[in-house]
Simulated assay, not measured.
Amino acid sequence: MRDWERAVASATAVATSLGLRTDDAVVLHRSNRLTLRLSPCDVLARVAPVGHGAARFEVGLALRLAATGSPVAALDPRVAPDVHERDGFEVTLWTHHAGPPEVPAPEYADALARLHLGMRALDLPTPHFTDRVDQARRLVADPDRTPELAAPDRTLLTDTLDELEQAITGRRAPDQLLHGEPHPGNLLATERGPLFVDLETCCRGPVEFDLAHAPDEVAAHYPDADPDLLRLCRLLVLAMITTWRWDRDDRFPDGRRVGTAWLDRLRTERVQSRRNGP
């Protein structure tokens, strides 16, 4: 049995043991963690290997943010809000929401601003966004982990990560708790309004780092965003997500093709960026 099949079996067993009827499991997303919809109990299950380390942090953060009224998805109210371990996997159970696939830009920006407001009320240790940049830098520097990355592309990514990190931190913008990856795939349209999911990437940094993950039109509706800082953050995020696509263990669908396209885009945007600054 493959690892993801074992993960599905663990999630199904956990839900059943907690009294939730589970006749079917549909894989919604498969990367470093598996996201499933369990039916007919209609639960969203997130599954990761024991030791992944993010599940307990994510559950605790979701509960604290919910208490501030922040727009985050809720754990399933029928079971204890906890991390359930079974057969080498950590399973968390969340409320499943069905809704339209896209959130309009004004609502997206409002939800992100309210999330940031709620996050400012919390005080907890989290990595800085520069720690995530360093993770990308180490990946690029390790040919064993990125064996298909050509030398010129390796140099492009390294130089971009170094220069953009320095340019962003040099602006000394205020840091705060961030979602880390509030892209459209992590925002649900629900009857309660837009709700953010996948809090494991939480970090500290300027709000523009979060905005850089959202569609361009969202920034126009976000209050007091710095357009120059946002431009730098968008380019840095592009370099980071391009790096992830060249990880030998990356499970992003059609990841190599996407990674090649993003390298081409990065080259073009670097030329344009140098005309405007770093």
Rank of each mutant, 00 (worst) to 15 (best):
H183I: 04
W244F: 11
D144R: 13
P127R: 14
G205C: 11
L161P: 00
Y222R: 03
T130F: 06
L238V: 11
G205S: 12
P227S: 11
T201S: 13
P206L: 06
L229N: 01
L232K: 01
G118Y: 08
P194W: 04
A136Y: 00
D198T: 07
R231Y: 03
A225E: 11
E208V: 05
R138E: 14
P206W: 02
W244L: 12
P215Y: 09
R138T: 11
G180R: 00
A214W: 02
L187C: 12
L229I: 04
A214F: 07
Q176F: 10
T201M: 08
L229A: 04
P182G: 07
R234N: 10
R120D: 15
A136N: 03
L238T: 06
N186H: 14
L236H: 06
L235D: 00
G180A: 03
F209I: 13
E148T: 14
V140D: 02
L117N: 12
T160M: 01
F209T: 01
L232F: 03
P182N: 10
L229Y: 01
E191T: 14
D216W: 14
D226T: 09
E148N: 11
E181C: 09
A173G: 06
C202I: 07
T158P: 01
R145K: 11
C233G: 04
C202H: 08
L178M: 07
A151P: 02
I168S: 00
R231T: 11
L117C: 11
R154C: 07
T130A: 15
P127C: 10
L188E: 08
M119H: 02
